[in-house]
């Protein structure tokens, strides 16, 4: 078996792939909340991906890829038996996990998979785990069955209401907090920065419920060497790759992450995709449009 070989690839909803890779060194050290940096080939960018599962005995790690930009599109083209050029990890500090009492674990779009190991570990630690997963529509919801095995309750949310609740994670959360059916001791949220910032705002206003978000920033080395992933936290500059990626959401300067730090390479990303293949051209255009919508 060659280094970083794909043992299994599964497209469980359109454009979302789960990859199982052989990397025994990472599998034996991984902890919930940590990530890896992946290069598809020697010309690729290094992109961070959260570990969603690992098996110490088999020496495998798993992550989920959403076909979004050039690197993730390249990954979508890879097959079982293909190998990655470089995988570095496990990186970042493990998530803050203990027996809090009742915990809401929430994940949206590409963050859904990343919440899985966190929910799993929280359950093992004796928490009452309520999982909320969000997708645009029914067809894009995934990991429901897996979450049922590690949660006491699983709540599904879709933007169009095609399955589960209609709306977003923060709508469900707001309802839960206001109905006061159960006291929430701790909240985890992983997903796009806009969604996380809204959750953060909500929980800060509604009684300052401890809320921890896993931020998504641009990274290069993942060891604190470059400062690409820097963010303002409690008035100080922190590096997501070594100080995070999980932070107390209420202390993060979300405005800066969403509008300043993460829109850096949009035009370059579009160019990359166009160069990659003709099919990607339309994808690039579509993404440019949806990004504009998201941030506006």
């Amino acid at each position: 078996m060659s280094k970083f070989e794909i043992l299994k690839k599964e497209e469980f909803v359109p454009n979302f792939y789960k990859l199982d890779i052989s990397v025994p060194t990472i599998a034996r050290k991984a902890k919930a909340g940590q990530f890896i940096l992946v290069m598809v080939d020697e010309r690729s960018e290094k992109i961070p991906l959260t570990l969603i599962d690992w098996d110490k005995e088999k020496g495998t790690i798993s992550f989920i890829v959403q076909e979004l930009g050039l690197s993730t599109s390249k990954m979508a083209f890879m097959e079982e038996g293909d190998s990655f050029y470089s995988i570095v990890g496990p990186l970042g500090e493990p998530a803050y996990l203990e027996n809090f009492g009742t915990v809401v674990v929430s994940g949206g779009c590409y963050g859904v998979g990343a919440t899985y190991p966190i929910a799993k570990r929280l359950k093992e630690l004796g928490n009452h785990v309520i999982t909320i997963i969000e997708a645009k529509n029914e067809n894009l919801l995934y990991y429901e069955e897996e979450f049922k095995t590690v949660s006491d309750e699983v709540i599904l949310v879709t933007t169009d209401g095609s399955k589960g609740e209609r709306g977003h994670i923060y709508d469900v959360l707001e309802h839960m907090i206001e109905s006061q059916q159960r006291k929430i001791d701790h909240i985890k949220v992983i997903g796009c920065n806009v969604m996380m910032s809204k959750v953060s705002k909500l929980t800060k206003e509604k009684g300052a419920i401890p809320t921890y978000a896993t931020v998504t920033t641009i990274m290069v080395d993942g060891t604190g060497m470059c400062g690409s992933c820097r963010l303002s936290y409690d008035g100080k500059t922190k590096f997501a790759c070594v100080d995070g990626p999980e932070f107390n959401a209420h202390k993060i300067d979300w405005e800066e992450i969403i509008h300043v730090r993460n829109t850096l390479y949009i035009s370059e990303e579009t160019l990359s995709l166009q160069n990659f293949s003709p099919e990607c051209r339309s994808l690039a255009k579509y993404q440019e449009k949806s990004r504009e919508e998201e941030t506006s």
Partner: peptide, 13 residues
Amino acid sequence: NLQGVYSANEYLT
């Protein structure tokens, strides 16, 4: 932290 400010480490890396 505005867009367009690099550390030399990041720029050179």
